[in-house]
């Protein structure tokens, strides 16, 4: 589904991603872990098509297409969903109008008729239950005045409506208490099918207790320094990132 080959990204002259290669197949859940500043969020933003920094090298192929040539909105319509670490507040734009516009753009892309208002509202109600989002929230402006937890649940709610093929969840667990974490994880798990794939980006292992990854990658200093099964996350939690750093630093000095 997604192949990243030797991706290098510079921001303001500083190399943030130093050659990332990654292969995600449908039905898989990948976890990308790493300490702060290792480049996790940069990778997520690059995949979603945010216009920043320079891609100096590398290739990203998604469903057989060159992802880097696609506009952000086309990536979305092709099924890529980014759950933002810090969802943007957009005053004045109501959630309903926002999601309806987005969904109908997706439908148009697939050659479907736009959803009627009543059908859309029905769909919203249905999906709201999934993440236990209060109905009041959908009447407000996008993310405006939402608490941290509400913002994250809102991201999963949008994911539920857009039904992506590849979901990238950037630190979706940060700032969540244990109940909210369970709700979010539960939502993600319910949306999981053999046809779609998920990349979970996280700092801690605790989210991976609920969303069980098939593959775990450790990102450090712009490179994937270790790849393993779900047990790698557990080991990492036990030994901390210093363990990885030490390893890498020894390698680079040795």
């Amino acid at each position: 589904m997604l192949q990243i080959v030797n991706l290098k990204v510079e921001i303001e002259g500083k190399e943030i991603l130093k050659g990332i290669s990654l292969n995600v197949k449908k039905g898989e859940i990948h976890a990308i872990m790493g300490p702060n500043g290792s480049g996790k969020s940069t990778l997520a933003s690059v995949l979603a098509g945010k216009d920043f920094g320079d891609i100096t090298e590398g290739k990203i192929t998604y469903m057989g297409k060159n992802l880097l040539e696609m506009a952000a909105e086309d990536r979305s319509k092709e099924g890529i969903f980014l759950g933002f670490q810090y969802p943007t507040e957009i005053p004045g734009v109501s959630m309903v109008n926002f999601m309806k516009t987005a969904l109908n753009e997706h439908r148009k892309y697939r050659g479907l008729e736009p959803l009627s208002s009543s059908d859309f509202l029905k769909l919203m109600r249905e999906k709201k239950d999934l993440v236990k989002i209060e109905s009041g929230l959908t009447n407000r402006s996008v993310n405006e005045g939402f608490s941290g937890g509400e913002k994250k649940r809102n991201e999963i709610f949008q994911m539920a409506i857009l039904e992506p093929k590849l979901a990238i969840l950037d630190e979706t667990d940060s700032g969540l208490d244990i109940d909210a974490l369970r709700i979010v994880a539960n939502g993600v798990n319910q949306l999981k099918t053999p046809e779609n794939a998920t990349i979970v980006i996280t700092h801690y292992q605790r989210l991976l207790d609920y969303i069980i990854p098939d593959v775990v990658h450790v990102l450090y200093d712009g490179k994937i320094v270790k790849t393993g099964g779900k047990e790698l996350a557990v080991e990492l939690e036990k030994k901390g990132y210093d363990w990885i750093k030490k390893d890498v630093d020894i390698v680079s000095y040795g």
Binding site: D51, A72, R75, S76, F81, L82, F98, E105, L162
Partner: peptide, 16 residues
Amino acid sequence: FYLRSRGIDKNEARLM
């Protein structure tokens, strides 16, 4: 970017 990442095209997003 947030709007575009949900599939809304640039012009429509600007308008919104």
